[in-house]
Computed example of a mutant assay.
Amino acid sequence: MTARPENAHQTRLLRLLRDDGARSRAELGEVVRLSRSKLAVELDRLAELRLVEPAGLAASRGGRRSSIVRLSPRLRVVGIDIGATSIDVAVTNGELEILGHVSAPCNVREGPDVVLDRALDLLGKLRGEGLAEEIHGAGIGVPGPVSFRDGVPVVPPIMPGWDRFPVREAISQRLGCPVLVDNDVNLMALGEMHAGLARSVDDFLMVKIGTGVGCGIVVDGRIYRGMSGSAGDIGHIGVDDDGPTCVCGNAGCLEAHFSGAALARDAVAAARAGGSAFLAQRLEQAGTLTAVDVADAVAAGDSVAVRMVREGGRRVGQVLAGLISFFNPGLVVIGGGVAGLGHILLAEIRGVVYRRSAPLATGNLPIVLSELENTAGVIGATRLISDHIFSAP
C-alpha cells in the first residue's frame, strides 16, 4: 500500500518538493511558516514513510548550513492517455519528470478490454526497462465524459462498450495501486498547469481539437468538472442546425463541422469532387485521408485545404467567443492533433474571438498553441494521481 501524508502540513511539503524540486529545510520553513522544531517533526515523519530523503547540505546563509530535502527517488507514477486512435503511456518520478514514454495506435472502439490490455502492455515495456519496479499510483484519461467520483466513463459518444465500465477498479486491481480516471482534456489542462503555458494562470481554458473536440475548464487552479462530470463538452454545442449529423445524434455540432474526423470526411469529399489535386493524389495513393493529409495540403499551399481549415477555425472561434464572454479566462490553450495545423488555424480562431467577444474579456487574453505536444495528457494524468497520493486521507 502506498504511504500517504498524514496531515495538511505534510501534504503542502510534498507538493512544494514536487513542484519546485529539492529545497533546504530553511527554505521550506519560510514557505510553509512552521517553526524549526515542527518542520523537523513533519519532515522526519515523511522520511519514515519513505516519501522524502536528505540530499546534502545547502550553501551557508551566514550560520550553520541547512540540510536539503528532496522527494524519494524511488517514487514512480504512471500516466495513461487513451485517445480515439492512440494510447500514450509514461512513467515519471515524484517530481513528474518523464522517465519513459511510449505510444501506439489503438482504436478506442475496440472496447475497454482490448484497449486497457494494450495500455498495460505498453506500461509493461517501460517496466521491463527497469523504470518502475513499484508503482505508487496511476492516472488515466479517456476521450469521453467521466464520472470522476465513480471512475467510469458515462455514455461516451465515440467509445462503444465503455459506458459504466469500471476502469478505475479494473486497473487498480491489476497494478495494485491507487488509480484515478478523468476525461482526457481535463488531464491536458492539468498538464498545461503543471508543465506548460498555464503554470502561472489560475483561470484558463484548454481546448483539445482531435478526433473530437473538448474543453478543460480551470477555475482558481482547479479542474471544474460540473455536477455530473460533463463540463467542457463543447464539441456538442450546436453551430448550425442544418449542418452534418454528429456522432451524438444531433445535427450541426461543432465536432461534426470541425474535428479530425470531420476534416478527414471533408478532405475525401473534396478529393472525389476534383476540388483538390493534392488531396486526390493522396487519396489515390492511400485509399483514405486524415487530418495529417490536410495539414500537408495546407503546407503545400492547396487552396481547398486552406479554406477548410479557415472555415473550421471560424467555427471554433464562434464557440470560444461565447465561452470567453461568459467565463472571462486569463488564457486559452489550443491542443490536440488538429492543432498541429498551426498558425493558420490559430489566426482564424483569434480573429473571430477578438472580433466577437467583449473588449474587456479579450484585452489581455492570450490564445496560444500548446507547447507540450503529445505529453500534455500523460503529464496531467500523473499530476492528477500525484495530487491524490500527496494528500492526507
Score class of each variant (00 low, 15 high):
residue 54 P to V: 08
residue 138 A to T: 14
residue 56 G to L: 07
residue 107 N to L: 12
residue 200 S to T: 15
residue 161 G to L: 01
residue 333 V to T: 05
residue 169 E to A: 15
residue 115 V to I: 15
residue 219 V to P: 01
residue 177 C to W: 12
residue 12 R to E: 13
residue 348 E to H: 06
residue 86 S to T: 09
residue 157 P to V: 00
residue 145 P to M: 01
residue 133 E to W: 03
residue 295 A to K: 10
residue 196 G to S: 08
residue 343 H to A: 09
residue 349 I to V: 07
residue 238 G to K: 04
residue 173 Q to I: 11
residue 343 H to P: 03
residue 65 R to K: 14
residue 316 V to L: 15
residue 111 G to K: 10
residue 222 R to E: 15
residue 213 V to Y: 00
residue 115 V to T: 15
residue 237 I to E: 01
residue 362 T to L: 09
residue 314 R to M: 13
residue 100 G to V: 08
residue 143 P to T: 00
residue 197 L to N: 03
residue 114 V to T: 14
residue 225 R to P: 02
residue 184 D to C: 13
residue 130 G to N: 11
residue 177 C to K: 11
residue 388 H to I: 07
residue 29 G to A: 09
residue 83 G to F: 02
residue 134 E to M: 11
residue 46 L to Q: 05
residue 130 G to W: 09
residue 77 V to N: 09
residue 290 T to K: 04
residue 6 E to P: 04
residue 177 C to I: 13
residue 92 T to W: 01
residue 313 G to R: 10
residue 39 L to H: 07
residue 227 M to I: 05
residue 216 G to C: 03
residue 238 G to E: 03
residue 84 A to D: 01
residue 63 G to V: 12
residue 48 E to T: 12
residue 59 A to Y: 05
residue 169 E to V: 10
residue 113 D to E: 14
residue 350 R to L: 04
residue 119 A to G: 04
residue 138 A to P: 07
residue 359 P to L: 14
residue 267 A to P: 09
residue 305 A to K: 04
residue 2 T to E: 07
residue 32 V to R: 09
residue 6 E to V: 15
residue 182 D to G: 02
residue 319 V to P: 01
residue 9 H to Y: 09
residue 362 T to I: 14
residue 193 M to A: 15
residue 81 D to A: 13
residue 247 V to I: 13
residue 187 L to E: 12
residue 8 A to Y: 05
residue 258 F to C: 09
residue 329 P to M: 01
residue 274 G to N: 10
residue 373 E to V: 11
residue 165 F to N: 04
residue 142 V to N: 04
residue 72 S to R: 04
residue 23 R to N: 08
residue 23 R to P: 09
residue 107 N to C: 11
residue 167 V to A: 10
residue 234 I to L: 01
residue 157 P to S: 01
residue 24 S to E: 14
residue 169 E to Q: 13
residue 13 L to V: 06
residue 134 E to G: 06
residue 89 V to T: 14
residue 305 A to H: 03
residue 136 H to F: 15
residue 287 G to F: 08
residue 95 E to A: 15
residue 319 V to F: 02
residue 31 V to M: 08
residue 386 S to D: 01
residue 309 V to F: 06
residue 206 M to C: 14
residue 47 A to I: 11
residue 4 R to N: 01
residue 112 P to W: 07
residue 351 G to H: 13
residue 305 A to L: 07
residue 382 T to D: 04
residue 258 F to T: 06
residue 32 V to F: 11
residue 386 S to R: 02
residue 9 H to K: 09
residue 177 C to V: 12
residue 299 A to Y: 06
residue 141 G to N: 12
residue 159 M to Q: 07
residue 333 V to N: 07
residue 176 G to Q: 12
residue 25 R to A: 14
residue 348 E to D: 05
residue 368 V to C: 05
residue 342 G to F: 09
residue 307 R to L: 09
residue 202 D to H: 08
residue 266 D to G: 02
residue 59 A to M: 05
residue 137 G to H: 07
residue 39 L to P: 06
residue 346 L to G: 04
residue 140 I to P: 10
residue 114 V to L: 12
residue 13 L to D: 00
residue 197 L to W: 00
residue 389 I to W: 13
residue 237 I to N: 00
residue 109 R to G: 12
